[in-house]
Structure formats: C-alpha cells, structure tokens
Nucleic acid binder design. Sequence first.
DNA 1: GTGTCAATGATTTTCGAAAATCCGTGCCAT
DNA 2: ATGGCACGGATTTTCGAAAATCATTGACAC
Lengths: 227, 227
Amino acid sequence: MAADRPTGKTLAGEAYERIRGAIQDGRLRPGDRMRFSDLQALCTMSVTPVREALARLTAEGFTVLDDHRGFSVAPLSLSELRDITANRKLCEGEALRLSIERGDGQWEARLVAAHHLLARVPQGRDDMPSVIRDDWDERHAAFHRALISACGSPILLDTCLRLFGHAGRYRRVSVSLSGRRRDADAEHRQLMDLALARDGAGAVAALHAHYQGTADALEAFFDGRNA
Amino acid sequence: MAADRPTGKTLAGEAYERIRGAIQDGRLRPGDRMRFSDLQALCTMSVTPVREALARLTAEGFTVLDDHRGFSVAPLSLSELRDITANRKLCEGEALRLSIERGDGQWEARLVAAHHLLARVPQGRDDMPSVIRDDWDERHAAFHRALISACGSPILLDTCLRLFGHAGRYRRVSVSLSGRRRDADAEHRQLMDLALARDGAGAVAALHAHYQGTADALEAFFDGRNA
DNA sequence: GTGTCAATGATTTTCGAAAATCCGTGCCAT
DNA sequence: ATGGCACGGATTTTCGAAAATCATTGACAC
C-alpha cells in the first residue's frame, strides 16, 4: 500500500509517526524506557532519524529526555489528566465558540459528514477487533477536529489537537473498561445539533460536560486501579 | 563564564539555545534559509546535534522544514501576529486569573521582586547598547512569567511561555521604532498592583489592553513598512 | 524562440563507527 | 558493617563521510 519510499517524505518523519503511533496505541507504555536498539528494530533505520523523531516528540510532551540517560515515554498521572481536561475546556471551548460564530456552510457540511462516519462505527469495546477500534479512534478524532475547524486560529487549532492527542493516551488506557462511555454517541450528536443550531453557549457547556465526564470516568478507573 | 562543557548537559541542548537565541534577537531573520554549514560554524559542532535542535525548534514553530530542502526561520505575518495576540489574551488571561485566585505569599514576593528588577532597567530604545537591551528583555520575560507562575497548570504555563517567545520575535522587529511603547512601565506597574490587590477581572482586562496595545503598535509599524 | 530533458553542483539526509557518559558491581579502608 | 572509589558493561551522544535529493544550467529537438 505504502511504497517503500514515498518520495518527498523523510525517514525521520516516518519514524515520528511510527513511534507516536506506538505510544498512542499502548505498544509503548507510559514510563517505559526507549532504547535505541529497540526503536531501530521497530523503524528499520539507523539511529539519526530516530533521534530526530524523539526530539520532536519530546518538544510536544509525548516523551521525556533525561540528559545522557536517553528517552522514555512520558508518564501518566492524575494531576496531568486534570490539567489536560482543564486546558481542553479552555482551549477547545473557545475554539468551538469561534467556530460556531464564524463557520460557514462548508464547515457545517464537514461536521455532518464527520458525525455520520463516526455514528456508523460501533461504540468502542474491549472485545472488538483492534482494527475497528482504531477506525473508531480515527473518526472520533476527525469529528472533534471538524467541530473546531472553523475557529480561524491556526495556533489555537494546533493547541487543541495537541491536547486531544495527549488525552487520547489516557482514553486508551481505560478502553478495557467498557460500558462506562455508554452515552458518548448521544453526547456527540448533541454537540453537533447545538453547533448547527448556532447555540454557542450551549455547545460549549455540552463540550465541557463531555470532557469532564470522560475525565471523571478515567479518574474513577485510576482510583480503582491504585486501590 | 560558561565552562567548555557544562557536564550533565548535551551538545544538542546548547545548539538549541544558541540557535533560538539567534532567531529571537534577529541575527537570523524571518524567512532566512539556514544552511547546515553556517549553523555548524555558529555552534562549533557537527551536524547531528544541530539537526536535533532544529527538530525541536520546528516542533515549537520557530523554524519550518521543507522536506529535502532544509530548514528556514519561520516567517512573520500580520495574520500570525493577530493570532498570537488572540491566543495570548485567552491563555495568559486565564493563567493570570488562576494565579490571582491561587497565588500565595511566595507568589506575591516573586512578583514584586521581578517588577523591581524590571523597573530598574531603562526602557528599551534603539540607541541603547544591546547588552542592556537583552537584559531588559530577560527581565521583561521574567516579570510576565512571574505574573502567571501560580496558575497551577503546567500545561497552561507552557503554552503561555511558548506564545510569549513567539510574540518576542515580533516585538524585537519593531524595537527600532522607539517611543511607541512609552507607557509599558506604567502598564507593568498597574498589572502588578491589580494582581496584588487580587482584582482578577481588572488584572485580566489590563493584560488584554497591554497585549492589544503592543499588537496595535506593531501592526501600525508593519503597515508603515509595507506602504 | 520555446519547451523538455539530462548532467552538474550544492545541500540535505542518513549511515555506521568512535567517543563520551552513566549505572551497577565489587573491592578496600575506616 | 558501612561508606567511598575505581572498574566494566551497556547505552547514549557525537562525529565524519557516504548516499540521496533537489535546484540550476546548458544543450538539443521541435
């Protein structure tokens, strides 16, 4: 499918995507130390591009670097989960407000299309094949991206996407805890409806509730795990 | 002053700081292409650590990467200036509000100390030696950092610092336009007073005005330049 | 005169090995 | 017994050169 060397793209870029993928889907777990020998085996390339990929990932907060002790996957913590949630409320909330204020017909079309695709995939459960679950993750991200895509601020958009990616690491940890997100579908539909109705305040409130709900579920999961 | 090799630190880290410094103080100008040969001369090291530094800078938006065409300094534009300003209002405003809500006596002390140091340096002008101007820049950054340092959100703090760094590139371009920022000192004092008085709403409003004022001045400068 | 294509030069990108650094282990002195 | 210290192994970090890629120039056909 992908040619051996999709010309115009660099090896370091591929290493970045591959390692980030491994982190986000849990193949590399939080706190794990990342040896270059393993990473070279995973990426099938020399150390230089891998190092460049890790530098980028570190700048984005997915990995941490101890000088002369190498890289490791950024650890997860309750305090960071709370921090991410608070920042998502702030940034994605504002981005959604702006999108509703500024979005045109094209934006509405993108939103409806993304929701349609999301609704057609069964809700994520632990017993579903990972291929389908990955598909749901991708469409889920696309839906949230569509929601805020008309905000008109590239910087804000970038911040939101970064936060979404970080939140995804927590989401994935608790994916084995099924049933807890029973109403995600309904919440997504409600978000779309409020956005299309141009109800900015209502949509932002719903988004806050959506994020707080997922955060609470995750927090309960973590508490149960530590006890 | 700095030892030849401050052990415990990596060469790539030094390259990062050096190149970032060159970008922020204008030695490398927006849009400039960055050849590795030049950068190696500037940093006195091989290509590998320089490349890692550029990868980090690219992830933070200070440089851009065209695949197989190398790195260049991220260009400046009015639209990005407006975008940065809007995001600073949102993020630093919230961070300031939180700091005022949560800050303790230690925070107040840091704030007063930072303002004292800032006020003791003469206002930036085009005829001042660059050493002093650099000093003012550093203390200016320290003051704004102190303002929001008690917000309790590492992620928000990181976002704010990144935005501040980007805004600094625009600030520096217009530093030759002296006299325009005549009331920066007064505004800083007002910010501190409002923060110490725990007037959250007032302080956030003052911060917004502060940023909008600098943005307007810069925009006028850019307009005059293009005409 | 214009457009296409191949060779050339400059530059980035990647490799594989050398140098530097850190952690753990075992020995020795107190 | 305990604390300090040097040594060995594993790993990161850096180097210098080779391979790959892109822009430019010039020639040639139409």
